[in-house]
Design a protein around this nucleic acid. Sequence first.
DNA 1: GAGTCCATGTAAGAGGTTACATGATTTC
DNA 2: GAAATCATGTAACCTCTTACATGGACTC
Lengths: 182, 182
Amino acid sequence: MAKTNYTRYIILGFLTYRPLSGYVIRKFVERSIAYFWQLGNGQIYPTLNRMVKDGVVSMHKESSDIGPDSKVYSLTEAGRKELDEWLKIPEYEESFRSPMLLKLFFGNRATRDILLEDLKTFLKETREKQAVMEIFEKNYRQIMDENPEHVYMYLTVLRGKMWYGTNIKWAEQAIKTLKSAK
Amino acid sequence: MAKTNYTRYIILGFLTYRPLSGYVIRKFVERSIAYFWQLGNGQIYPTLNRMVKDGVVSMHKESSDIGPDSKVYSLTEAGRKELDEWLKIPEYEESFRSPMLLKLFFGNRATRDILLEDLKTFLKETREKQAVMEIFEKNYRQIMDENPEHVYMYLTVLRGKMWYGTNIKWAEQAIKTLKSAK
DNA sequence: GAGTCCATGTAAGAGGTTACATGATTTC
DNA sequence: GAAATCATGTAACCTCTTACATGGACTC
């Protein structure tokens, strides 16, 4: 069995909202699922072309008042079906990769200062991300209370908030521990 | 710039302990860094061959009382240097990928039951992993108290414990929320 | 004699990353 | 006139995944 092409399912997923261009899909990814999935141009555009060939999306050109023309993609019936089939497959395994932890694991006194620098940057960036997530979480909670249909999105945001929160706590402790250990 | 070959650095890292076979390296990975980095045979063995060619490790055969002969790899000076160079590069970005969150995000009433099943399996497995981590964390804390050199490993274990703990809390809440939302 | 562990790998093919390229329009 | 945003894409590379293959030794 081949490697699963998640890019394809993500595109299909966003196209259930409404027809979108590759550019807009990228923006959507960045503004919603970025903390647990990223997509670059090198993935989106070739995949989109492939999907047209496979008949899971259709494309039409649209001229815009601002900026150049864009290619807008719509979900076809075949696409909708492919997405639904995928949603039915159980899948609970996740992957987490951290070069920083690798360096910590193989680290020693000689690398302590570099690690401390990394941890500080990590802490700073994580705090910023968490501040954004915090706002998201509140908004989504309200949206969910009004419209229970959005419980699914809310739960992904909640995870993000919790994830960043834990990272902050860990980084704070790690910095403290490393500083005191000479 | 090309994608970083972390497999290579992980192997170099473990070889600083003592000379090891590919098989043993895999066991080490599984028993220590698996929660934030995994390696399969398809990565370890070809990389090891490549590393011999590049002169960063050397290989000699060893016959064993139990089981077949094994190829044992040792770190060369060039390898030690390559590892040290890498340890100096600052790097704090991490990647987290979750197909389950993708499915949650694009999920709806129709997929609720599948999602609930996934979440329950996820919760069960995460609890098991956390139980192991809990023991690790206690052991490492003690080791660290006796020998501060091990603070680096301790902090990676601590992160694992916290990571699993958060996942458990989130999964419990997600199940509760999904169940109550009909 | 079945199952598990030790121990080595290979083949095929994607998926993904990084970097570069192009050009229009809007804003300061 | 510079910078930012809109918008599309390609090239090269290679890491990683998945699956398969082989065989000895030990244990129940």
